[in-house]
Design a protein around this nucleic acid. Sequence first.
DNA 1: TCTAAAGGTAAGGTAAACATTACATATTGT
DNA 2: ACAATATGTAATGTTTACCTTACCTTTAGA
Lengths: 65, 65
Amino acid sequence: MKNKIKVFRAEQGWSQQVLADKLGVSRQAVNAIEREKHDPSLQLAFDIAYVFNANIEDVFFPETK
Amino acid sequence: MKNKIKVFRAEQGWSQQVLADKLGVSRQAVNAIEREKHDPSLQLAFDIAYVFNANIEDVFFPETK
DNA sequence: TCTAAAGGTAAGGTAAACATTACATATTGT
DNA sequence: ACAATATGTAATGTTTACCTTACCTTTAGA
């Protein structure tokens, strides 16, 4: 699953640790999702979109099936 | 995580089995998600929204955090 | 009413999304 | 240059989102 977390995060000037703290997850979780090692849960995807004031569809891009 | 899968499914007149087949998952998976026993993966949430011609935000409703 | 389809649920297994800890490298500020 | 911060990554463990099989109850059609 492609995502633009790094772009949104850079716009806010937040480190992975700062974002992780806002989300209540570990920095490694943010890092793994950002580098697309795995997908976030649906709840976490909502949380991520929320902290960036965006919709899930603005941040995450599934393969068209 | 609240969702309106049953409503969307009823609109289309699809059984859980039919929806499961369209999604490529088991009927039990659809049943468990629909009854909110657990959340779908982000990919499956996208797939569900897609088959209903909707956005994720139209189908799934996280607790505001 | 009888039968078939639909839906609910339980047991048991696998894979992946988290966690924590730890360490190495890269980047940035003074 | 040095120190502090940021990032990448590995090991190991837990939880949960799936799976299959199976069985029971409910609903709907002939």
